[in-house]
């Protein structure tokens, strides 16, 4: 093996923890690399979309992680151009499952005399690390716009919220969004139109 293999970026090659991967199979490796690139391209947006629906970072991370694994297990052999709607369809299902589970949990917890909390969790030093910041004025503007958008998005019905994010943030077209949401194209158009209407009413001053 050449020395370049050992110097390869962790983003460029899948590292299998088990010894049962046939590395001579270039087709499988090429497939894995393509999947890696695809997931790297969608993971941050997917996290934001899951976060908008679940409003909890760890839940959103779990949902994205499950969607990634499910895509890899069930659909890695499908043509790469089909992955995006499939991935968001899986994510949508995971979000719905988690919301249902959360509703059940909330009902059960309501009967308990006390609830556990996360106060004993130590802060994660990586989480405390600052991200690359824009200039302070610009930062304030962005934060204000983002807060307003997040607030307005949170008030949208879930389907409208997801359609808006898939269309606007992820850039899926109507047909792809319909496949991802498991509904008709007409339904996507209706949800998107209503979401736009509501958001423009609420954010008009900030966004126009």
């Amino acid at each position: 093996m050449s020395e370049f293999a050992t110097l390869a970026s962790p983003y460029s090659m899948p590292v299998a923890p088990h010894g049962d991967v046939d590395l001579s199979d270039s087709s499988a490796n090429a497939r894995a690399r393509t999947l890696n690139q695809f997931l790297a391209g969608v993971e941050l947006k997917a996290f934001k979309i899951a976060l908008a629906a679940l409003r909890h970072q760890d839940d959103a991370l779990d949902a994205v992680q499950d969607a990634m694994l499910q895509l890899a297990r069930a659909y890695a052999d499908r043509p790469a151009e089909e992955w995006k709607p499939l991935f968001y369809r899986i994510l949508e299902n995971r979000i719905r499952d988690m919301q249902r589970r959360r509703t059940v949990r909330a009902r059960v917890m309501a009967w308990l005399p006390f609830r556990g909390d996360d106060e004993d969790e130590e802060p994660d030093p990586i989480a405390q690390a600052p991200s690359p910041d824009p200039p302070p004025v610009r930062k304030l503007e962005i934060e204000e716009a983002m807060r307003a958008l997040e607030k307005a998005l949170a008030q949208l019905p879930r389907r409208q919220q997801q359609v808006f994010l898939l269309r606007t943030l992820e850039g899926l077209d109507v047909a792809e969004t319909a496949r991802a949401m498991g509904c008709s194209e007409g339904s996507v158009k209706t949800h998107y139109f209503r979401a736009l209407q509501t958001l423009r009413e609420q954010l008009g001053e900030l966004y126009v």
Binding site: A16, V21, A72, A76
Partner: peptide
């Protein structure tokens, strides 16, 4: 999560 998913696909 991505690395785990890609490794899963490579195992197949």
């Amino acid at each position: 999560a991505r690395q785990a998913a890609v490794a899963e696909a490579a195992r197949r």
